[in-house]
Computed example of a mutant assay.
Amino acid sequence: MSGPTAGALLPVRRPGLPYPVVIGLLLALLGAAATAAIAAGSVTLPAGQVWGVLLHRVHPALAEPTWTAVRETIVMDVRLPRVLLAAVIGAGLSVCGMALQALVRNPLADPMLLGVSSGAGVGAVSVVVFGLTAFGAFSLPVAAFLGALAALVAVYLLARSGGRMTTVRLVLAGVATAEVLSAVASFLLVTSNDPHKTQSAVRWMLGGLAGTTWAVVWIPAAAVLAGTAVLVGVSRPLNLLLAGEEAAASLGLDVHRFRAALFVLVAMMIGAIVAVSGAIGFVGLIMPHVVRLLIGADHRRALPATALLGAAFLVAADLVARTLIAPEEIPVGIITALAGGPFFLWLMRRRSK
């Protein structure tokens, strides 16, 4: 790709606040969102009591227990795992979105827009509907990863023409691939003979964190932490890609090998995320752009900030999803779509101008 597309990824203004201040504010935002999410629910807990329970679990001397055992169970075993999973997923989707935007040099790249989430969804739905257990307890994450990788490779190959990739081709290839894969997933659901499995798969496809337990948190947390660490470690090559493939190659970067390796890494992260949360869209599109407006496009600084902002955003979105029409719960993917759709349209208008 060339010119305007690449330029949209570069910093257009100097950050108004020092980087440590921005990171501190994002940490405070994440802490506030997490506290509110743990405190809110059918049993409302004071914020001080939430922190008291957490500090007491860290070390009994840090807080005097003045709460009931039931309230401690609510905090530690019901709400905290869900909040942590929301933070992990939000961070993972955000850093994957930023990495994809650099890899394909397109500010509209997003795991959902490029069909990656749909590919992971087909893999996961196949496991749910057909009861595939070839990899035991890891069957769902492995199937989601393979589906995500296949979708990402397909979109990349379809969007390239004559060694070049345009914004229009990328978006069209991503949308077309996502639609086809969504149709495949729907076909699998329609032809399923088990209503219970079908209902479970449909709920999963809408994206949600209901029923989260500690056992569910560890695999996506490990994948996101390891993947984010690797992405931060390759910040310089990601920055080089923003200047163009030719410039990056002239500075010693094996562009094709690097891009292929990062595609596999992103697919692994998305597969691990989608396996536990379903398809949650627009997080990977919105957060990188907000961070670039705050601190610029240097990935060494932007990736940690994007992870924190994405974590805070999805924790807050999940809080809205489970309290807006309580006691009923809205899939969090619907909330992120309602927030991300208008932002996507604004971004398209801004780019056209």
Results as ranks from 00 to 15, higher is better:
125 V>D: 09
3 G>L: 13
241 L>H: 05
119 G>F: 08
210 A>R: 03
26 L>C: 10
301 R>P: 03
91 A>E: 01
223 A>F: 12
345 L>E: 04
287 M>L: 14
109 A>P: 02
262 L>V: 12
223 A>C: 14
142 V>H: 04
323 T>D: 06
257 R>D: 02
290 V>D: 01
38 I>L: 12
18 P>M: 11
288 P>F: 09
120 A>V: 02
43 V>A: 13
315 V>Q: 06
48 G>R: 09
180 V>S: 10
27 L>K: 06
334 I>H: 00
261 A>N: 03
209 L>E: 09
250 S>A: 15
349 R>I: 00
66 T>C: 00
76 M>Q: 11
194 D>I: 04
44 T>Y: 10
257 R>Y: 01
215 A>M: 04
5 T>L: 14
63 A>C: 07
299 H>S: 10
261 A>I: 01
148 A>S: 14
44 T>P: 00
158 L>Y: 09
89 I>N: 02
3 G>E: 14
242 L>C: 10
244 G>V: 07
251 L>A: 14
251 L>K: 06
25 L>Q: 05
229 A>Q: 01
46 P>W: 08
199 Q>C: 02
278 G>H: 05
38 I>C: 07
118 S>A: 15
255 V>A: 02
51 W>H: 13
328 E>I: 00
206 L>E: 08
83 V>F: 05
258 F>N: 10
73 T>W: 11
258 F>E: 05
156 Y>D: 11
335 I>L: 11
25 L>A: 15
336 T>P: 05
61 A>V: 14
311 A>V: 00
237 P>A: 06
9 L>Y: 04
212 T>Y: 06
43 V>S: 12
89 I>W: 02
47 A>G: 11
38 I>S: 05
231 L>I: 03
94 S>L: 02
223 A>V: 09
44 T>V: 13
97 G>Y: 02
291 V>E: 03
118 S>D: 13
135 F>Q: 06
204 W>Y: 13
221 A>L: 15
233 G>C: 09
278 G>P: 05
97 G>V: 04
50 V>L: 07
226 A>E: 04
288 P>N: 08
166 T>E: 08
169 R>F: 10
206 L>R: 01
113 L>D: 00
220 P>G: 10
325 I>G: 05
63 A>I: 04
14 R>I: 02
109 A>W: 08
110 D>P: 07
181 L>D: 04
300 R>K: 13
190 V>N: 04
351 R>Q: 14
146 L>E: 03
219 I>H: 10
74 I>F: 07
139 S>E: 02
40 A>S: 14
207 G>Q: 06
65 P>Y: 04
256 H>Y: 12
328 E>F: 13
350 R>S: 15
239 N>D: 15
13 R>V: 10
40 A>M: 12
151 A>L: 09
90 G>K: 03
164 R>I: 00
20 P>R: 12
11 P>R: 13
170 L>D: 08
305 A>W: 02
198 T>V: 15
267 A>S: 15
284 G>N: 04
221 A>I: 04
132 L>P: 06
177 T>D: 08
76 M>N: 06
313 F>S: 11
68 T>Y: 05
128 V>D: 00
291 V>S: 11
289 H>L: 11
299 H>K: 04
195 P>E: 06
315 V>G: 00
171 V>D: 03
72 E>S: 11
189 L>F: 01
92 G>P: 02
44 T>F: 08
115 G>A: 09
56 H>I: 03
306 T>N: 09
154 A>M: 13
94 S>N: 05
334 I>M: 01
266 V>L: 13
209 L>H: 07
186 S>K: 07
340 G>K: 07
24 G>M: 08
